[in-house]
Design a protein around this nucleic acid. Sequence first.
DNA 1: CTTTCGCCCTGAGTGC
DNA 2: TGCACTCAGGGCGAAA
Length: 308
Amino acid sequence: MPELPEVEVVRHGLHPAVSGATIDAVEVLDERSLKRHDGPAEDFIERLTGARLRGAVRRGKFLWVPIEPFASGRDSATDAPAEALVAHLGMSGQVLLRDPSAEAAALTRIRFSLTHPVHGALRVDFVDQRIFGSMAVDALLPTRDGAAAGYGLPLASIPSQVAHIARDPLDPAFDERAFLRRLQGKRTTVKRALLDQTLVSGIGNIYADEALWAARVHYDQPTETLSARKARELLEEVRIVLRRALDEGGTSFDAQYVNVNGASGYFSHSLRAYGQQGKPCPRCERPIVREQFMNRGSHFCPRCQRIR
DNA sequence: CTTTCGCCCTGAGTGC
DNA sequence: TGCACTCAGGGCGAAA
């Protein structure tokens, strides 16, 4: 459920807390939350304990924290990080920045004890009810295009397990022409394409439905029948929807408590289609319909959004 | 190679 | 009150 705007809220809150901080201790309470990590929990803990962190970066729905290279005897200031702590929130993941004395939240899977040069002792809890999310320590590889890998730090290196994820449509290095060309060449339907993170990242079920509604496109429209003009319009509506959610997320952000959680964090007051089944379409008043599609709900206006 | 499908997972909510 | 059942769906590996 956390999509680009929600993950960015987490990144934004995590960034100042981890920049320059050192990990003193790692506690893995549930090893299932390490399914992305290549190795046992002991390896995860060993790689992170004593590590100094540089900041928080995001591409699409993936978040990572580059680890400063250990002093090599050479000029370490010019050394680029070789590894990062990677996080994906999955369906229900949260990253909670807590006071060290606070009690652990329910469903906490991984806990980090940090020392920050300015803020002092901090605790970061990874909470995840459904365990679709996970963390990992992963190698950083150079980006293919040489541009910054994501939003947050000007580092042109990306975790190996994120390398196949496309840039998101708000990324300055997002290649719009390549996206439109690949979209046109696909033999699938338009919502599937929007949810394909190797084509464009950051969009999940909620913002896909919202952007499709705004662009008046039916979710099951075959991509090859989508005009170039309509495809550009749809991409622009994706950007508008994501930016609006980012703005709203930014206003409710509390620096002491980084939280992404279900409906409350989902800017529900501004949703036009998602979860609005039975309610009148804000454009034409015809009731919004919900259909099963790809094992998830698709919400749309049967009058405004037709397959053509 | 491209596209689709099934699985992972569990607390909250609902109905009887 | 308590139990059984349903629901939410992102990403990935395997199948088609």
